[in-house]
Amino acid sequence: MQVPAPVEYERARSVEDALALLERRGPEARLLAGGHSLLPMMKLRLARPQVLIDVNELSDLAYIRVEGGDLRIGAMARHRDLLESPVAWEHFPIMREAETVIADPLVRNRGTVGGSLCQADPNEDLSAVFAALKAQAVIRSTSESRVVSMDQFHQGPYTTAVGPAEMLVELRVPIRPGSGSAYEKVERRVGDWPVGAAGAFLRLDAGRVAEAGIGLAAVGAEHFRVPAAEESLVGEEPVEEAFTEAGRLAAEGCHPVTDQRGPADYKRHLAYELTRRALRRAAARARGEGDQPCR
């Protein structure tokens, strides 16, 4: 029987309340959102906070809406909210495509977007999605609110820019006309982490790539990105040769390790092939060629 070690429990009634509790209870306090990463880690004693601050009542942080030219996603939006959000699908099909293959319906009912990003597991699909989209993260403390890029947010495996007395409250993704996005994942079975996964974002202008984002999960890409692969696309026509070159650079620039999900060379192959596939579909969407839903 796996149960967490003894822990204290506090329930936050508002963002301000959560931040005040974090400040008062010190660095051994942890925010508890969906709990689908933290509670299993507590059972295994990989995490051992002294106090949990439950933020599940903060339904005012569960929004997904367009504001100020951005898609804004509250940190407490559940995976299912993002999966089913028409506005997310309209602007960033990559989100629904990733959510379709994240965990399973029951886990998606509880797990949150903010919790997934703060867990910063190197296998995490949404981290790759938001990296590809060049999103920004809004982090709050009792005294300030700051906005960081995803590169700044992801500091390494299981490490983010969110400090002990801070809370991720929102993700912002700039909406860019003429763009398309897609997500490709290979998993061993439903609900598993990827063996490898790639997300792509392309903005086209006058028939050429004006902006490119590639997010890779589970293949050891620093900050979930390979900038050289993205840069290789800018100014090019969105054609097969360009996608292949970006795929080659993505495979070259990541650092997969052999584990129970597969050997490193296979994962490198996935980085190559899934990058090409995602780019192909992102480009088709950017050109307005149907919406090509993933299922």
Partner: peptide
Amino acid sequence: DTSNCGVCAVWMDGEPVKSCTVLAAM
């Protein structure tokens, strides 16, 4: 015990969840 098998599924506020990964306090 790891939110994989789903035998512990119950409804919470009308939606199925895995009750091995929810605290009674929550």
